[in-house]
Computed example of a mutant assay.
Amino acid sequence: MTRLHAQLSRFEDAFPGFRTEIVEGSVVACPLRPHHAGTVFAAWKALGPQLGPEWDVVSDVAFPLDEDNEFCPDLAVIPAREANRNAIAYPPDLIELVVEVASQGSIRRDYEVKPGRYASRGIANYLILDPMNGHAVTMWNPGPDGYRGRDTIPYGPDLTIDSPLGKLKIPTAGLPVDPKARPRP
């Protein structure tokens, strides 16, 4: 974990306005846009009050998964006692729910690479909020080869995640949708 994080920390200040993480052995810098931040904020605001005092939401902190992958999820639900340590990196085994917000540059990572890595670590729920397509993808039932359950739900109704922490709801009707990336009729 120390070697990976040492690599990543060299890049954190070099790319202002970008989030950096290590995916499949490569340092990846993703530009942050208003719809991305708005989606993260809305999901955090929805999830926080539903968690008991023993759980907390963290954002953009490192979770080294293996020698080639150190992910910085948009949101992760971990034990509050760990979040209170205010660390820059945490073991991925602490995560109960991961939320990623898809962007033009993160499609392959969010939809193909990360689900397998998160599932292999036993993370119970993985959620992708996608402002480009106006939908959410929820994955559950992790196994060594990926998640065995997957649903795609258009934005509009509240999204319910049946997690080990209980049923968590995220309103999707007001989530941002990128008008340039989503075809309009």
Rank of each mutant, 00 (worst) to 15 (best):
M1T: 12
T2A: 14
T2L: 15
L4C: 08
A6I: 12
Q7R: 15
R10Y: 01
F11R: 13
P16V: 14
G17M: 13
G17L: 13
F18I: 09
F18C: 10
R19Q: 11
R19A: 08
T20A: 11
I22E: 06
S26Y: 13
V28I: 15
A29Y: 08
L32I: 15
A37Y: 10
T39I: 07
T39Q: 03
V40P: 01
F41V: 12
A42Q: 09
K45P: 00
K45N: 09
A46Y: 12
G48E: 13
P49L: 09
W55Q: 09
W55V: 07
V61L: 09
V61C: 03
A62E: 07
P64F: 07
L65W: 05
E67V: 14
E67A: 15
E67Q: 14
D68K: 12
C72L: 05
P73A: 02
A76V: 14
V77T: 12
V77D: 06
I78N: 02
P79K: 14
P79Q: 11
A80Q: 11
E82Y: 13
N84P: 01
N84I: 04
R85S: 03
N86H: 12
A87G: 00
I88M: 06
A89L: 13
P91W: 05
P91R: 12
P92N: 10
L94Q: 07
L97P: 00
V99N: 00
V99A: 04
E100H: 03
V101K: 01
A102E: 04
S103R: 00
S106D: 02
R109Q: 05
Y111R: 04
E112C: 06
P115I: 10
P115K: 05
G116M: 08
Y118Q: 03
Y118G: 02
Y118P: 01
Y118F: 14
R121E: 10
A124R: 12
N125P: 06
P131I: 01
M132G: 13
N133R: 15
N133L: 15
H135F: 10
T138F: 08
M139R: 15
M139T: 08
N141M: 13
N141H: 13
P142G: 03
G146L: 02
Y147P: 00
G149K: 15
R150F: 03
T152D: 05
I153R: 02
I153W: 05
P154F: 02
Y155L: 03
G156R: 01
D158V: 11
T160N: 04
S163A: 05
L165Q: 06
K169Y: 07
P171F: 00
T172D: 01
P176V: 03
D178Q: 02
K180G: 07
K180M: 09
R184H: 15
